[in-house]
């Protein structure tokens, strides 16, 4: 349920933001998002409403969190160290 797609805010006017989704722009309502939204922020869009502001830095934080997870795994299993390295070194290319 709940198809949610993140996009980047281009402009904010009152309770409505113009959001860029990979080259497609769409207006998104800000009635229910709980933090002030500014251009440059990411928002999570669900049925035309922003339900969450996502600071851009949180994406990197997510990857760091997954690395930590594997690092904790490593401590239990030294064999896993090399795959954790693979995660860190994973290519950034678009699939």
């Amino acid at each position: 349920m709940c198809l949610g797609v993140p996009g980047r805010v281009i402009a904010v006017e009152g309770d409505v933001a113009t959001v860029d989704f990979w080259g497609v722009r769409k207006t998104v309502r800000l009635d229910v998002v709980d933090e002030p939204v500014a251009p440059g922020d990411y928002v999570l869009n669900h049925v035309g409403f922003a339900i969450r502001r996502i600071p851009a830095s949180d994406i990197q934080a997510t990857l760091a969190l997954y690395e930590e997870l594997l690092a904790a795994e490593d401590e239990r299993d030294p064999m896993a160290a090399d795959v954790a390295g693979e995660l860190r070194g994973g290519g950034g290319g678009r699939p």
């Binding site: 989704f21 990979w22 497609v24």
Partner: peptide
Amino acid sequence: VRDEVRAAAEL
């Protein structure tokens, strides 16, 4: 797939 089409399709 063009980026715009991919994004619109995902939305």
